[in-house]
Design a protein around this nucleic acid. Structure first.
Length: 648
RNA sequence: GCCUUUGUAGCUCAGUGGUAGAGCACUUCCUUGGUAAGGAAGAGGUCGGCAGUUCAAUCCUGCUCAAAGGCUCCA
């Protein structure tokens, strides 16, 4: 008998050689039907594998990420089977599961292929799935494996075999398709109910541009038809919410070939939105003890030589700007931190002055590769909501927690209720990659972990992902469509204070080196606005909406009344416009709705006579008539709530 | 950066080896209206840029610029 430990800590005894599937059956038949694979001692394996010693066991189903991964990987094999049946002679590269679905790289030997063929492959996959073929694992010798793929003429698999050691090679067969694969796989093809081929793209064999370009087919599968429908709905919704599309439609920002790629132009409405965000954060930061500063857009080369950025990024950055007479070199600033270090140095600092928190909405310029540019999320000129906290080593933990509080406050105010954090630490094996002494690192890493724990942040720890100058914590948020975005970051830095020889006088009257914390809740305003657009679908909360209201006179007879009302609204700091066009009220309403204006104030004969306004809310319709004061109170309340509804 | 695809009016798009069209937006006129598109007329394009083939290029070829998707997720 062997002892099996379950994730909840429960221990049960089973016969030696029991399979995860047996265990599932011993619990319930329903569970057994849903088991896709299993995690035995932390390793994902087939549910049919025999367990030969005491082990921890987690049965994986569709609800587990690793279960989904197994499912999609098996689906890739099913797709390969379908393709081989329909296009004999096709050679196969690799076919892994990805975050949403899977792909297979194939070489069709010159056969024509495009998205027109998706349907027949989908149909074939369903047909093959209905056969409920088992995925059968088989150990093969390298010799036999080579013989198999030689006969098939698949040079890709032969190349993969080349890199594998004899004795560790396994084949998986389902139906008529056999593939070189280390697994694991789901029990049988019948679990795959719903199939959709998504796109076809070129991809180099082994990601090497000098090698043959293969055809990559992206697809996704689900155990229930309804889940596929939901997924396709999300894809469509994502397309509708694309910030590049909405940015144009709502006149928020634009790009111009003449200005240059990756250099966004903020239009009046986008600027309004952006300024609201800036002011919101500025106020929050002042409350949190930050001091706003402003630094120039260019700086002498010497600054970046000192900071070390010149050595590291000099080549990848934009070329220097030279003064005509003296031939001095200046650079567009790629980050704000060196400037802030120089601000720190403007006078001697005492331990009593710390922490010093310098904040700047600093516009920076970085060279990004041509192919990496994307809307507002990846640009060459952007504004960071940057700040640097200079503190004593004993203050790091407390400051870190304060920053987490600020970031979470910002997320909440902007409607991001689901978030998580990634803590990036040193690569334990290669400590020499990092600068600074071990003691500082240990302290900083421990502080970050402790702060995150204390704040109850759901975190993932990644080793080897730290910056070379210190560990960091990155925030991720989930948007209304369940997509993950990386947002703000907090980083601990021991390097810059050293490079800039920053000091403070301690209580012992000797010189000490401060620690620097870099942090940016939004990361970049550009990227954040893009995420905000996609999260809200352009339906911004009232306090951020570029136009908060539109005053719509029924006819030009009521224009004076409309103008008078609008003036009073403006005095209350409400923004918007009066629609003076010679159009019917239905048209004015439609246009305001299309432009996602939150409130419409409709005035005609009745309203003027009674001294009232008729209020209509976007997406909700007529709210009836009320006094202007009542409307303003309504609007102000919604603004001050700072809460957020992203629907509609 | 590399691969694939795309580039026609402000926007969304149709179209052809013989120098271009629709809808919306815009301008003017009519209409003065009650909760998601009132009517008419007009104006608007070096068909991304440069070069080549041709009697003739928006269309074919090459280069270039920009955008979209993909690659840098290794059975």
């Amino acid at each position: 008998m062997i002892k099996i430990t379950f994730p909840d800590g429960q221990v049960r005894e089973y016969q030696n050689g029991v399979t995860p599937m047996d265990v599932a059956l011993s619990i319930s038949e329903g569970l057994a039907r849903n088991v896709l694979s299993a995690k035995v001692n932390g390793q994902v394996v087939d549910a049919s594998i025999a367990i030969l010693e005491d082990a921890s066991l987690q049965l994986l189903t569709w609800n587990d990420d690793d279960g989904k991964k197994t499912y999609w990987h098996s689906s890739a094999h099913l797709m390969a089977e379908a393709i081989e049946a329909l296009y004999p002679g096709t050679k196969f590269g690799i076919g892994p599961a990805i975050e949403h679905g899977f792909y297979y790289d194939i070489d069709l030997n010159g056969q024509e292929f495009g998205s027109d063929q998706f349907k027949e492959i989908e149909d074939k996959m369903i047909e093959l799935a209905k056969a409920k073929s088992e995925y059968v694992r088989k150990d093969v010798s390298k010799k036999d494996a080579i013989a198999y793929f030689q006969e098939k003429g698949d040079e890709y698999k032969l190349e993969l075999l080349d890199g594998l050691a004899d004795g560790s090679i396994t084949f998986y067969t389902q139906g008529n398709f056999t593939d070189l694969c280390k697994g694991p796989h789901i029990p049988q093809t019948g679990l795959i109910k719903s199939v959709k081929l998504l796109s076809v793209a070129g991809a180099y064999w082994r990601g090497d541009e000098t090698r043959k370009q293969m055809t990559r087919i992206y697809a996704i599968t689900f155990p229930k038809a309804k889940e596929l429908e939901e997924y396709l709905y999300l894809l469509e919704e994502a397309k509708k919410r694309d910030h590049r599309k909405l940015g144009k439609e709502l006149e928020l920002f634009a790009f111009s070939e003449k200005v240059g790629m990756g250099l966004p132009l903020w239009l009046p409405k986008g600027t309004l939105l952006r300024e609201r965000l800036e002011n919101f954060l500025r106020r929050a930061q002042i409350r949190a003890g930050y001091s706003p500063v402003v630094t120039p857009h260019i700086a002498s080369k010497q600054l970046y030589v000192t900071s070390g950025h010149y050595a590291k990024y000099g080549k990848d950055s934009f070329q220097p700007i030279r003064t005509p007479e003296e031939d001095e070199e200046f650079f567009l600033k790629p980050m704000n931190c060196p400037h802030h270090c120089e601000i720190y140095k403007t006078k001697p600092r005492s331990y009593k002055d710390l922490p010093l928190r310098l904040a700047e909405f600093g516009t920076v310029y970085r060279y990004e590769q041509h192919g990496e540019l994307h809307g507002l999320t990846r640009v060459r000129g952007f504004t960071q909501d940057d700040a640097h906290i200079f503190c004593r080593p004993d203050q790091v933990e407390g400051e870190f927690m304060k920053v987490i509080d600020l970031v979470l406050y910002v997320f909440k105010a902007l409607g991001f209720t689901e978030y998580s954090a990634q803590i990036s630490l040193r690569d334990q094996e290669n400590r020499e990659k990092y600068i600074g002494d071990d003691e500082d690192w240990d302290k900083a890493e421990a502080s970050i972990i402790k702060s995150a724990q204390e704040k109850g942040l759901p975190t993932v720890i990644e080793y080897g992902e730290a910056a070379f100058y210190g560990p960091k914590l990155d925030f991720m948020v989930k948007d209304a469509l369940g997509r993950k975005w990386q947002l703000g970051t907090i980083q601990v830095d021991y390097q810059l204070p050293q490079r800039f020889e920053l000091e403070y006088t301690g209580s012992d009257n000797s010189k000490h080196r401060p620690v620097m914390i870099h942090r940016a809740p939004f990361g970049s305003l550009e990227r954040f606005v893009a995420i905000l657009i996609e999260n809200t679908g352009g339906n911004f909360p009232l306090w951020l909406s570029p136009d908060q209201l539109a005053v719509l006179p029924i006819s030009e007879k009521y224009e004076d009344y409309a103008n008078e009302l609008f003036l009073r609204l403006q005095e209350e700091d409400l923004r918007g416009y009066v629609d003076h066009r010679d159009e019917k009220i239905g048209r004015k309403i439609r246009d305001a709705e299309v432009h996602k204006v939150p409130f419409m104030i409709i005035v005609g004969e009745k309203e003027q006579a009674e001294g009232l306004v008729s209020v209509r809310k976007k997406g909700h319709g007529d709210l009836g008539s009320m006094t202007l004061e009542a409307f303003m109170a309504l609007a102000q309340e919604e603004i001050h709530q700072l809460t957020f509804n992203s629907h509609k």
